[in-house]
């Protein structure tokens, strides 16, 4: 069991040579050996989606794959999402819409959403729901997440669709949503 594997992993466009116990999952190696703790640990059973990373652009539950299988694959984690010192449109939209509440599910959802937008720059809401169906969030009620993905997609397409207004009623008789 104490077999160790040494591999050069390609993570967020960098080559990282790591030695790790051969039976360790990609999640464990990312978090423990590579110290990339943005990828979260929610169940280790493939049920919650908090550990989602991109492998060759496809979303993958890092708790279900062995790091030893990652030779020659491109891994992307939330830490590699910013473009220089600018937030990725998805990150910006999540921040601006408050789509991260406790934030624990956020990195996994961002990765799954990035893969979706890579493959489909103009997804319908149903397609977003389907793409993110494996990512649980216990806090937000999901709607802001869906809106954030839609908004980021629009931004990436060069369209400007500002987010929905908040709904504060100063008066019970007001007929429309006010500021």
């Amino acid at each position: 069991m104490s077999n160790t594997t040494t591999l050069t992993l390609r993570i967020n466009d960098e080559d990282v040579t790591v030695a790790f116990p051969t039976h360790h999952t990609l999640l464990e190696v990312l978090r423990e050996e590579c110290r990339l703790t943005g990828t979260k640990h929610g169940c280790e059973l493939g049920e919650c989606g908090t550990c989602t990373v991109l492998v060759d652009g496809k979303p993958m539950l890092s708790c279900l794959v062995l790091a030893a299988e990652m030779d020659g694959h491109e891994i992307r984690t939330v830490e590699g999402m910013m473009i220089g010192n600018t937030l990725h449109p998805l990150q910006q939209a999540f921040a601006d819409l408050g789509a991260a509440q406790c934030g624990y599910c956020t990195p996994g959802i961002l990765m799954a959403a990035e893969a979706l937008l890579e493959a489909n720059p103009d997804p319908t809401r149903e397609q977003i729901q389907e793409a993110l169906a494996g990512n649980l969030c216990r806090c937000t009620g999901y709607i802001k997440i869906l809106e954030a993905v839609e908004w980021a997609a629009a931004t990436q397409r060069g369209e400007d669709t500002p987010p929905a207004k908040e709904s504060i009623y100063g008066s019970p008789h007001a007929a429309t949503k006010g500021e």
Binding site: G38, A95, A100
Partner: peptide, 25 residues
Amino acid sequence: IGKSPNRADAFAKVTGRAKYTYDQQ
């Protein structure tokens, strides 16, 4: 007050920098 500034920790949360207990090393 009553407006909607972003969460003070939004940046930390969307970049994966927010360190939870589970993440302590």
